[in-house]
Design a protein around this nucleic acid. Structure first.
Length: 396
DNA sequence: CCTATCGGAGTATAAAGCTG
DNA sequence: AGCTTTATACTCCGATAGGT
């Protein structure tokens, strides 16, 4: 029945319309165009972690994780990495850009987690359909089964099942589980601006901030990431330095049209435009000399660095779609017998899946390149005495 | 096109194991 | 004791057969 199907579909795939970047999905910032001379950078390289000026300013109870302070800098909620760790978030490519060699492409935004009722009614359970907490449930009402809409009886869990020794997951100092690699994955909250904040930002012409405020990588993104420090962008090619910012915070000319493929991070004068660096950050003064590999990254198209719109379905989806169903005959007996997973030949799937996923992520990825970086990683990091950043190495 | 059916992925959570 | 890990029990997505 279509209405039912539609309902369940909408409940599960609450994804936004095509085209417009959905909320909470990455929307990558670019420096504003300048006099027609500025070429947008290529996909961002992995970024260094940087110190967190004031994590206390993040109010976890604020709606959508919005900062409780007015226009608190977006990065305030990013936790500092453990010593020796590096956050990195290789950005997705713009159309026409190859993703940096060796790095897997970004994953599509994940589906929202499915929410289950505690107990489905007998009718819904037997139909394998979504139920709700009400009795009679919506579906039973719709199908005229209200009288028979009752909770089923939950089987008691088996006791006394012995298990092998547990495999402890690695944990870092903060107690958060790691994935067994030496790069941590942290996902800062998605900030959405309040109207007031947005207005304030618009007035300040802080486009960069606006964009950053909603950027966030997909949940399933295979890389750890961190937002770049305020004002940091990929470095220009060899021998080309960003000039100091223009007078009164005006953006400087950008002399080079092409960026290297794996540029260093570089304090960019745009970062200080039009206002001062955010709370806690020292002023950005001048640009260190960038080192970079050859500037082979032909300046690719345009400014449209878009969120990852990897159209392909998730692997699990694909797998599930691919499965061929052997239709059973409609038969009540068969129905009740179908779900006995006791005696499942290969053991529970859920467990195997999760372990396999972690393992696979570690072993089967191509080796990403290393990224040239500034040893200081910029004035901001130095000023905060943050952990010495390290280049993203091939251990993902 | 609509509905019923149902395999199996995904989720919730109880129980076992571990650790301070 | 409290936390973590594992595995069971269950929900319900989504593909598809069959009916109208």
């Amino acid at each position: 029945m279509s209405s039912e199907a539609a309902k369940s579909t909408s409940s599960s795939s609450s994804s936004p319309q095509e085209g417009a970047p959905p909320q909470g999905v990455p929307h990558y910032p670019q420096p504003p165009p300048y006099n027609g001379h500025y070429q947008p950078p290529p996909p961002y390289p992995p970024f260094y972690a940087y110190p967190v000026p004031d994590p206390a300013h993040h109010d976890p109870n604020a709606p959508n994780g919005a900062p409780s302070q007015p226009v608190a800098p977006f990065f305030m909620a990013v936790p500092p990495p453990p010593p020796g760790m590096v956050y990195a978030y290789p950005m997705p490519t713009a159309p026409g850009y190859p993703f940096p060699a060796g790095l897997p492409p970004p994953q599509p935004a994940p589906k929202p987690k499915r929410k289950q009722v505690k107990m489905a009614c007998t009718n819904c359970a037997s139909a394998c359909k979504r139920c709700d907490e009400a009795r009679p449930c919506e579906r039973c009402i719709k199908y005229g089964l209200a009288e028979t809409c009752v909770d089923g009886v939950r089987k008691e869990r088996k006791k006394g099942i012995k298990r092998g020794p547990y495999k402890r997951k690695n944990r870092n100092a903060s107690g958060e589980p790691t994935n067994g690699k030496f790069i941590e994955i942290h996902r800062p909250p998605v900030f959405r601006l309040t109207a007031e904040q947005a207005t304030r930002q618009q007035k300040a012409s802080s486009r960069l901030h606006q964009l950053r405020a909603i950027q966030c990588p997909p949940e399933s993104y295979p890389f750890p990431f961190v937002y770049p420090p305020y004002g940091y962008v990929p470095a220009p090619p060899d021998g080309q330095q960003h000039p100091e910012g223009g007078p009164n915070g005006a953006p400087p000319a950008m002399p080079h049209p092409v960026y290297p493929p794996y540029p260093t991070l570089y304090p960019h004068p745009y970062g200080a435009y039009p206002g001062a660096p955010p709370m806690g950050y020292p002023p950005i003064s001048g640009a260190p000399v960038a080192t970079s590999p050859n500037g082979a990254n032909a300046g690719k198209p345009d400014s449209s660095i878009t969120p990852p719109t990897n159209g392909s379905a998730s692997t699990t989806d694909a797998a599930s779609k691919g499965k061929k169903r052997a239709r059973g005959k409609s038969d009540e007996g068969a129905r009740s017998a179908k779900k006995s997973k006791d005696g499942h030949p290969e053991g529970p799937t859920s467990n195997g899946d999760s372990l396999g996923g972690e393992e696979a992520a570690g072993k089967d990825q191509p080796q990403p390149p290393t990224f040239p970086v500034h040893s200081e990683s910029g004035p901001a990091a130095a000023a905060f005495g943050g952990p010495e950043p390290r280049p993203l190495m091939a251990t993902m």
